[in-house]
């Protein structure tokens, strides 16, 4: 079980790996599309990697609700719990 802070930093590493964005730019209030300019293919790659890293399942129908980084952190935290 990871804390929300650990999930955030893990997610930031995944986003950095995929997009090159600095990890400190990946903050809870940032929108994946509007702030981080992540397209749908990159988003799906991030989801696949996050599922692996956090041992959770994020169904495609839920991905569209993950608007911000914080949404994803909360989702992963809940899925782990």
């Amino acid at each position: 079980m990871a804390s929300e802070q650990e999930i955030l930093s893990g997610l930031a590493e995944i986003v950095n790996e995929e997009t090159g964005l600095p990890t400190d730019s990946v903050q809870a209030d940032k929108s994946f599309t509007d702030d981080l300019d992540i397209d749908s293919l990159s988003m799906m790659t991030i989801v696949v990697n996050a599922e692996e890293k956090f041992s959770v399942r994020i169904p495609d129908e839920d991905v569209k609700n993950l608007r911000t980084v914080g949404d994803a952190v909360a989702y992963i935290s809940q899925a782990q719990g």
């Binding site: 293919l41 799906m44 790659t45 696949v48 599922e51 692996e52």
Partner: peptide, 10 residues
């Protein structure tokens, strides 16, 4: 299948 990355085809 879930682990196949979305950029595979492109």
């Amino acid at each position: 299948a879930r682990r196949v990355l979305p950029l595979t085809v492109p």
